[in-house]
């Protein structure tokens, strides 16, 4: 047979044999021992906590300073607000009297003479709720105040 005559080369090891299989462990270089790493962890953490505490105290101081500044100007703002508020209350009451003057039996601040708080002494200032306070204003002003949070 013709095909059987072709010289075939058998797959054999290289001359001199295969290289030995590298089965020995090559351990990573140990920079730190276990104890050193634990000590390093605690050391770095302690130092970081010290830095954190410095920062924490500084932030606390700044917050207290801001609160202090606000409390220093608060009496002035409150005094101003009180006057504006009382002015507006009087305007509201006058507006109600003007609006309801043609309605027989209507008394200002009551429902045909029936008070909201009948047990309170007559000269008690009850702060009206938001919708009553804005009752005689334009609806846009009411909206602006009511949805202030959405816009700011």
């Amino acid at each position: 047979m013709e095909a059987c005559q072709v010289a075939r080369k058998q797959d054999l090891p290289p001359p001199g044999g295969y290289k030995p299989i590298p089965y020995k462990r090559v351990p990573a270089k140990t920079l730190f021992s276990g104890y050193t790493m634990f000590a390093g962890y605690f050391g770095i953490t302690a130092f970081a906590m010290y830095l954190y505490s410095l920062n924490y105290k500084q932030i606390l101081r700044d917050q207290i300073e801001m609160r202090s500044a606000k409390m220093a100007i608060y009496p002035m703002l409150l005094a101003e607000r009180d006057r504006a508020y009382l002015k507006q209350l009087r305007k509201n009451r006058d507006a109600e009297a003007e609006l309801m003057k043609d309605v027989p039996g209507w008394e200002v601040g009551t429902y045909y003479g029936e008070k909201v708080y009948k047990l309170l002494p007559p000269d008690t200032l009850v702060e009206p709720i938001f919708h009553e306070y804005y009752a005689h204003s334009r609806s846009w002003e009411w909206f602006q105040r009511a949805y202030l949070k959405l816009r700011s």
């Binding site: 101003e80 009382l86 509201n92 200002v108 601040g109 009850v126 009206p128």
Partner: peptide
């Protein structure tokens, strides 16, 4: 509103002072 005619509310002139600008 809850404020009846009995409640004393100061006049506007009593409340007007120069305000901080």
């Amino acid at each position: 509103m809850v404020l009846t005619a009995d409640v004393h509310l100061p006049e506007e002139s009593e409340l007007t002072v120069p305000e901080l600008q």
